[in-house]
Design a protein around this nucleic acid. Structure first.
Length: 275
DNA sequence: AGATGATCCTGTATGC
DNA sequence: TGCATACAGGATCATC
């Protein structure tokens, strides 16, 4: 599930391949994957011939800035993939391939998504992206995001994990890295957000930065679907401490990791280290 | 306000 | 082996 480190890894691998290059022909195989309204002709027309000025990430969104104005935004949701292939790479009747964006000078970007939750938008400006984009909270790896910023965000009785994964509070954290950060900080995922004291908030801030930076350095986490901008899997899965490790010993105390539902989604944690 | 559940999808794993 | 069912969990929306 692409979260901040996965989307950032795609950005880093893709940027040198697309910056300064123009989109050529755009083929939409599944109009369903376009942000409303799903108009393949308008989508293709908005991109064809346009030069990519740069590639940014905001939360879990990838943003291709076009020269002049306009942008291509991509959200991969659960199983989406966006990767470059050189000229002449066969697609091989892949039923999960939904859009192909050729680049002038050779090669193409392919958008592939088994579950078809991912979305592509070609818009004139960020204000045309959906409310979920416009309401994004701060990036936890940004310079200005301090422990004090986190403390101000952790209000109310909601489970701390639900707050961490709320994109309007923090942008980019999903299930994997929320579980990992809460483990490193020794905090139970169901704790009401406002119940954390200053020491716990400081530990959680450190833990978030650590786990996100480590995961970016490793190229993200691949279980099955995630691939970077070159189609390569990430290397962080073996380093995960609790995520998808229920039944295995806690790396700190040896107690078996458990899985429970917190705010409607599964959470993995050590019942002894996380209180 | 916040929890809960359904929805969008399909591949994989499990149970009978 | 076949078939039904649960699960994965990002975002949005309806309901309580």
């Amino acid at each position: 599930m692409p979260e901040l480190p996965e989307v950032e890894s795609i950005r880093r691998t893709l940027e040198p391949l697309v910056r300064g290059r123009r989109f050529a022909a755009v083929r939409v195989l599944s109009p369903h994957c376009l942000g409303a309204p799903p108009a393949p002709e308008a989508f293709a027309a908005a991109l064809a011939g346009r030069r990519v000025a740069g590639l940014r990430r905001r939360g879990k969104y990838l943003l291709f800035d076009l020269e002049g104005d306009g942008l291509l935004a991509v959200h991969l949701r659960m199983t989406g993939q966006l990767y470059f292939v050189p000229e002449g790479t066969p697609a091989g009747g892949d039923s999960h391939l939904h859009a192909v964006l050729a680049l002038e000078g050779g090669g193409e970007l392919r958008f592939r998504d088994v579950r078809k939750f991912g979305r592509l938008w070609a818009v004139a400006g960020e204000e045309e992206l959906p409310p979920g984009y416009r309401d994004l909270g701060p990036d936890p790896l940004a310079e200005g995001f301090t422990a004090e910023s986190l403390r101000r965000a952790l209000v109310g009785r909601r489970a701390v994990k639900a707050v961490l994964t709320d994109q309007a509070v923090l942008s980019g954290v999903g299930n994997i890295y929320a579980d990992e950060a809460l483990f490193l900080a020794g905090i139970h995922p169901a704790r009401p957000a406002a119940s954390l004291d200053d020491r716990e908030v400081a530990r959680l801030w450190d833990a978030l930065r650590q786990v996100l930076e480590e995961a970016v350095a490793a190229g993200g986490t691949t279980f099955s679907d995630y691939r970077d901008g070159l189609g390569q899997p990430g290397g962080y899965a073996p380093a995960l401490r609790v995520y998808r490790r229920e039944g295995q010993p806690c790396p700190r105390c040896g107690t078996l990791i458990v899985k429970a539902r917190v705010s409607g989604r599964s959470a993995r944690f050590c019942p002894r280290c996380q209180r």
